Simulated scan of single mutants.
Amino acid sequence: MNHTDKLLEIYKLSYSLNDIKNVNKETIDFIKSIGEKINTQKGVFTVLITLITHKIMNPEQDVRKHQTSMSGGFSGRSIDSVHITPTLKKLGLPSMAESGWLTRSLEQPYPYNLDYNGKISNKVVKEAFLNILDFIEKNPTSATNLLRLLLAEAIASKNDAIVAIVPLKDAEKLTIENITKALDEHFRTKYSTHGGSKLPVLAFFAIYKSLIKEIGRYKDCTLAEMGSHTASDRTSKSAGDIEIFKEKNLFEAIEIKLDKAIDVTIVRIAIEKIARYNPDRYYILSYIGIKESDKSQITELINKLKLEHGCQIIINGLLPTIKYYLRLITSLDDFIMNYSNLIEKDTEIKKIHKEKWNELIEKHLK
């Protein structure tokens, strides 16, 4: 049995906790502290899941020694990347883009002892993280129940975020104007949590699902699955937020900025990605627009790239581009259905974003 199988086995036992008796109240409270911050401390959660799973399979291993460079250590990151993070994603539970060990505060080359100096941002979470691992080393037979308790917190978080998106009653009432109004309000609402910056990415993904079926330019093209919107450029292996492939080659990439103007730095980063991935077109779209003081430099960079590489960088506003694309697609109903489904199922979109979309459907689209 590998780590994937073991995690799935314990996951099935995590919906009921009535038989758990060998975990003290202090440790249960520490696990609840992790659960309360699970969506903002995904790295800590993922690393804990990895280490506890490994402890169950290897009771003699001190799992605080999470790197092979440590005496008696092992590679926690490898186990996470191959087994844990992919399984968490499959289960729809909080997870990092690739591995919890890509979080700088957790990748330090020191054991996770109680005096660990890694700068985990939340002090309560750091205390809980280190004390849970300390408890496991002192009580290795409790590892299975600890994993069940931790997974139960993740399941509760997942269930709390479930919001059914209301279906449209009359698709005939849909217009480009009222759809744009609804999207505009969905994007610009000030939410009390993170995740809102992914909303326009989902909107364009929904649009492209129609475009690749209907527009001749996209014949024989495929739409790549979206990666995590929280992945940094340091860890992301994609050319943009949305990628379209033709015959296994990158055809177009779209980079979307909600709350940041397009400046010369953003364009230079795009040019680096173009050199690496070689798309035919590269779109940079921003809700705010172009930084006025950078316009001339941006124009020079775009023109130079076109001459030297051949790729065309297209810069535009989010809403004007959405309006233009909505004119090209046959069914506005399909777009709304696709967007609603993406919002409902995406694990990075929070409950508040989903409830807001239901409110906007009632307000603008019915």
Rank of each mutant, 00 (worst) to 15 (best):
I361K: 12
D19H: 15
D170Y: 07
K173F: 06
S192F: 09
A164P: 02
L307I: 15
Y116K: 03
K65I: 03
Y208D: 07
A154W: 00
S236M: 05
I288L: 15
P86A: 06
T180Y: 03
I284H: 05
N278A: 14
L307E: 14
F74G: 02
N178C: 08
G196D: 11
T50M: 09
A270G: 14
L13E: 13
G118R: 08
W101M: 14
H353S: 00
T144W: 04
F30S: 04
T87M: 01
N178D: 09
Y282E: 05
L106Y: 07
L285P: 04
D334Y: 12
N145E: 14
W357C: 04
T175M: 09
H364S: 05
I215C: 05
L342S: 09
V82M: 09
K32F: 01
P109L: 08
R268C: 04
F45D: 02
I132C: 00
Y325L: 14
L199Y: 04
L202D: 00
T265G: 12
I266E: 10
H194Y: 11
V82R: 09
S142K: 00
I120L: 03
I28E: 14
K260D: 11
R64C: 03
D334G: 03
Y208A: 09
D115T: 09
I49V: 15
K6W: 07
T235S: 13
L211P: 11
T180D: 08
P320R: 06
I212N: 13
K89Q: 11
T175W: 12
L183E: 04
T189P: 05
P109R: 09
D184C: 04
L133Q: 03
E308K: 12
Q61M: 13
I136R: 01
M1I: 14
E252W: 00
L174I: 08
N122Y: 07
T87E: 08
K89N: 11
T53E: 08
E344K: 14
T4V: 03
K248W: 07
Y208T: 11
L365Q: 01
G289Y: 10
C221L: 05
K260Q: 12
T144C: 12
Y116T: 01
I271H: 00
K356V: 00
I284N: 02
N341M: 13
A143T: 01
